[in-house]
Amino acid sequence: MLKILDYLPDVIRNNILIEEERLNEIRIRMDKPVFYVADSREYVVKENDKPVIADKIMIDNLILKFCSHSKYAYEYAIKNGYLTVEGGHRIGICGQAVIIDDTLGTIDNISSLNIRISHEIIGSAKMMADMVLKDNKFSNTLIISPPGFGKTTVLRDLIRILSNKGKNISVIDERGEISGTYKGSMANDLGNRTDVMYCMPKVKGINMVLRSMKPDIIAVDEIGTTEDVRALLEVYKSGVNILATAHGIGKKDIKENTMLHLLVENNIFRNYFSLNKDRSVNAEC
């Protein structure tokens, strides 16, 4: 399997002085210094004591590498502002929106990349699992945190634990980062009873697995749109359990969210876990 550093040009790879396991993200912006974050501290990539400056050629070549030299195959992802590479690492992208017939066609002239390194931390959701699964009964759970606090890492581990405890879980992995699925095989361990629908729009995926996979739990990452909420209400009505994550700081944020408040009002979730930067967890009911 390719490691994320293998994708990077020598000038960056050779000057990141920290092992990949400790890296959180690498930020590459056109005509600006390259930064990386490790153990929540930011560093500048330097060569001979001078910051390494990213240019258009570097970014274009990186995009081609991330896309396996096949941009057409990643059109949906690019249009949605990200790319996912082998190992489930997500690359956020910014650039020029190309509008075709009043809809977003693609993102061209990409000028910024945020490479977020995915980590599989086995056991990170153990305590959470004990709380959400009592007498082998799972109660709907929402994991809440701002970006970069480890929602996906915790979700991944919770899925693995629940799956190995006998629950059939269908994961709608829109960006392929929960499972790190590449060419059909998963880079991350999601347990023995987990089915993954990857690179599939969330709502479509939810409807499909609901009808075809007879899951005990449907797991989705980063819910946030009206369509997501509607789809989850359908899941709830059908009697299937839900495990999801959302951006926010706590239950209060979800309550006040213009779209997600419906989930609170309809008592969809029994457990709300908010993650803190220091990896501690607050539980609310």
């Binding site: 396996s68 030299h69 096949s70 057409y72 195959a73 059109e75 060419k183």
Partner: peptide, 11 residues
């Protein structure tokens, strides 16, 4: 392969 299956070039 490209238009209908969106397979990548290495594949």
């Amino acid at each position: 392969e490209i238009r209908f299956y969106k397979r990548t070039l290495p594949v």
